[in-house]
Write a protein that binds this DNA or RNA. Structure first.
Lengths: 167, 167
DNA sequence: GTCTTGTTTTGAATGACTCAAAACAACTGC
DNA sequence: GCAGTTGTTTTGAGTCATTCAAAACAAGAC
């Protein structure tokens, strides 16, 4: 059985200045969200800081390096708790597994490459409000607007042009 | 074993006027898309005309009434072929199964109730082009923009107000 | 009417995710 | 510091939507 070497990453031994609840003091971020600070949670939050958009599986792979023995279900549990607490946002692009991102609270959208499926954040189309109001809301009380742009990233454009040239 | 009583719905016995390739002559629509006209395909297209947004499972249920013996996989096959041919559009709202709709080619979006998950079409936010252009495309060649509005439909608003009153 | 090709059936497999019970560890107050 | 409570994680199984593959079958071409 794998010993949990990462468990000795206690919150009172981190080198961050006290009182700094900025985006780097992950323990404080978690605690301030009303959640218990645990090794898997710190590991997931750290991994998420390294990749802007990641699947549960990808995070599991990354976490497994720094904290071997962590289960995939734990990662799902952590992500679920984080999402509920508003610490991360979950997006679900058509045709792929859910992606998690730390950027929350702002009204940003996504640009996804149909070739390599890479995801890029884009600021809200025209300022902030416009894309939140459909032309006819049919009596709905609209809470959020989700915008996903699909296209080809520079790399895949180059690839497509090259293979078109080969014909 | 279920006998295919619906199979005698041949294309040469329908009551539609010849040459009318409008949205009602399903056989012609299918044929014009370069696909073979089969009973399951006609049934799916008919079901889809009755409900603007349906899952494969829902269509399977409807089709099973008019054409017993049709398999769920056949429905998936039909929907796949239709989607590839551009006859239907597939949307995948977060947290639910894929929905299929006959409205294709126009740039319309969706308004989904977070309460009952009912889906309503909405016209493009501001005319047609604006929502197709992100503020910064990061070098991407943008092909489409997908907009999903999330909110509460009139019915669920009433329900929410009522239960809030009960507290 | 026959033949070719595309469809549908049947049955199994996959991937992403959820559920549940037991083992365990964080934070509470003592 | 230490024990208790409550929330987390592990382990293992289960679900749902969807896809894959081979054989049976039927649509449209000749």
């Amino acid at each position: 059985m794998a010993t949990r070497e990462g468990t000795d990453t206690e919150h009172h031994s981190h080198g961050l200045r006290e009182g700094d609840h900025g985006s780097d003091d992950f323990a404080a971020v978690i605690r301030d969200a009303g959640l218990k600070v645990t090794a898997p949670r710190l590991a997931v939050l750290t991994s998420l800081a390294a990749s802007a958009h990641a699947t549960a599986e990808q995070l599991f792979d990354t976490v497994s390096v720094s904290l071997p023995g962590t289960s995939l279900q734990a990662v799902y549990g952590v992500l679920g708790a984080f999402t509920t607490a508003g610490l991360v946002r979950r997006i679900e692009p058509a045709g792929s597994a859910a992606l998690f991102e730390r950027r929350v609270g702002d009204n940003h959208h996504h640009l996804i490459c149909t070739g390599c499926r890479s995801v890029t954040d884009v600021e809200c189309v025209v300022g902030e409000a416009p894309c939140l109001t459909p032309s006819d809301a049919a009596g709905f009380v609209v809470q959020t607007a989700e915008v996903t742009f699909w296209g080809l990233c520079p790399d895949c454009q180059a690839g497509a042009a090259a293979s078109a040239h080969d014909l």
